[in-house]
Design a protein around this nucleic acid. Structure first.
Length: 470
RNA sequence: GCCGACGUAGCUCAGCCGGUUAGAGCGCCUGAUUGUGGAUCAGGAGGUCGAUGGUUCGAAUCCAUCCGUCGGUACCA
């Protein structure tokens, strides 16, 4: 009885083509984060259940993967990187605050999988722990922009708001604080379901297309119209939005002071060249997370909005205090690596290659095997990613392999070349462009698409130059 | 979690009011072509028809349950 090769739902293998794109993405973002002077951290996948679950409600605990060990301790897989970070900061007094760290790691959630959403996925987080509201939040927003620019996924929009703005709304609309989470959750759906359904969900609920009853929150008409007035605050300019907020909340004593904090971040961003065209102050941003206390952030790709937010984050000034000790203010953001890769693939921004190799050195003549091997190592020592043919098989099979794996160049060195002290350099893609009309295979072969002879002595330099390595 | 649809080859699917050995296209492998990838041609591998139980002389086909996938919805730290 053989075992069927398979994976549990929501899990997947990352094959070489996926891994190559992923590693390039991660390298790019890491470079940005390190430019900001953030330091790397890694923590175990497994944490004590009480460490994980303190910040989460009963419902949230259901999506934690439980883990067992020989000691039968209560353990689980981490569901984000923020909670482990809070633990680390609390556990190691020697960590110097502010602790500015990045971490790229897998996390696990036992939710129902959706397209682009898995039970094991990767987050790339950037956080500053021990940093009060202000400069640190500006930096996080700027780093989000720089990361998205560096990745090259096309136009994007970073949106931010603040839990404090939303709290002002609650006061303005006379909504009690214990309804805050329910209200925020509905507001967060604005972009997805539209203002009319948001209003229904705030009041009496509605029946959706599938016949499901969506329960309402039972707010009054005055409260809903106050919320609607708030949500109608939209502007292409952060200054405009702030001005509208100031006038809407003018009746609330502390509002000016609270809005000054947002204005300061906005002004920082202006000074640094992050204009309203890519960092918008969007009052409908709420973020589902209960632990956010100040500015909240997200980012969407304008060419692929259906993928949702690729960055999410915010300020969480109370999370670290869970582990005892004084409150430590913190802010950060998380890049959804799997989600942004899915979007890039959708946008055709992922180069389809199944190997990092740039050159395949073919081996046609067993007598020249060692010469071919020497050439391959010369290329490698020059920093050129080189595969040498290691199996049996005719030249055709070797070239087919280069084609299949997406290796752009092949080197042919048989007796003909060896006698003349040259090698044949073949650029694989040429035949795809030039050979389409040829119907006779003999003609196809005779065309020698993309080939030229290069002196054996010059081939390393020639390839280095072609690949931009010189 | 709830509602609905659907599970047949690696992929997309046909077959299904029960009736011999279950098909196609694409992909894969081999060869024509041991110094040339594509196209073309010839050949080949690959399926306990999601699983289990039931009805029947006989089940991919009908029934039940379970599992899984997809869509919607809820949740999303």
């Amino acid at each position: 009885m053989s075992i069927k090769p398979r994976l549990s739902r929501g899990l997947r293998d990352l094959l070489p083509d996926t891994m190559l794109a992923r590693q390039r993405l991660i390298d790019t973002v890491r470079e940005v984060y390190e430019t900001y002077g953030f330091a790397p951290l890694d923590t175990p996948a497994i944490e004590y259940l009480d460490v994980l679950s303190g910040s989460a409600g009963a419902e949230a605990q259901q999506s934690i993967f439980r883990v067992s060990n020989p000691e039968e301790e209560e353990l689980g897989l981490r569901f984000d990187l923020t909670v482990p970070l809070s633990r680390v900061v609390s556990q190691y007094p020697e960590v110097t605050l502010p602790f500015r760290r990045y971490q790229v790691s897998q996390v696990w959630r036992a939710d129902k999988p959706h397209p682009g959403r898995f039970r094991q996925f990767t987050q790339f987080d950037l956080d500053a722990v021990g940093a009060p509201c202000g400069t640190a939040d500006t930096e996080i927003l700027a780093a989000i922009c720089d990361s998205l620019s560096a990745i090259g996924v096309g136009p994007y929009e970073v949106r931010f708001s603040s839990r404090e703005i939303l709290n002002l709304l609650l006061r303005h609309a006379s909504i009690s604080a214990d309804r805050a989470e329910d209200v925020f959750r509905v507001l967060d759906k604005l972009e997805k379901i539209g203002i009319e359904k948001v209003k229904l969900e705030l009041t009496n609920g509605y029946r959706d297309e599938s016949g499901d009853m969506i329960p309402g929150l039972g707010l009054g008409d005055d409260q809903v119209s106050a919320i609607e007035r708030f949500l109608s605050i939209q502007g292409t300019d952060r200054g405009d939005v702030l001005q509208q907020l100031r006038s809407l909340f003018a009746d609330i004593e502390t509002s000016a002071e609270q809005l000054d904090v947002i204005e300061s971040i906005s002004s920082d961003l202006d000074t640094l060249g992050y204009g309203s065209d890519r960092v918008a102050l969007d009052v409908s941003i709420a973020r589902g997370l209960a632990y956010y206390t100040g500015p909240v952030f997200e980012a969407v790709l304008l060419d692929a909005p259906q993928f949702g937010s690729v960055f999410g984050g915010g300020r969480y000034d109370n999370l670290v205090a869970r582990f005892g000790g004084p409150p430590i203010p913190a802010t950060g953001a998380s890049l959804g690596v799997d989600r942004i890769l899915a979007a890039m693939e959708h946008l055709g921004k992922v180069r389809p290659a199944k190997t990092p190799a740039e050159v395949l050195v073919t081996v046609m003549d067993g007598g020249l095997r060692q010469e071919c091997l020497q050439l391959a190592f010369e290329l490698r020592r020059a920093g050129i990613r080189t595969e040498i043919h290691v199996g049996s098989g005719r030249l055709g099979k070797q070239l087919k392999r280069a084609d299949r794996l997406g290796i752009p160049y092949a080197i042919l060195m048989g007796t003909n070349e060896a006698e003349q002290g040259v090698v044949t350099l073949k650029q694989m893609e040429v035949a795809h462009q030039a050979g389409g009309a040829i119907t006779q295979h003999e003609d196809w072969k005779a065309a020698r698409f993309g080939q030229r002879e290069v002196s054996r002595a010059d081939i390393v330099q020639t390839l280095a130059s072609l690949l931009g390595r010189d």
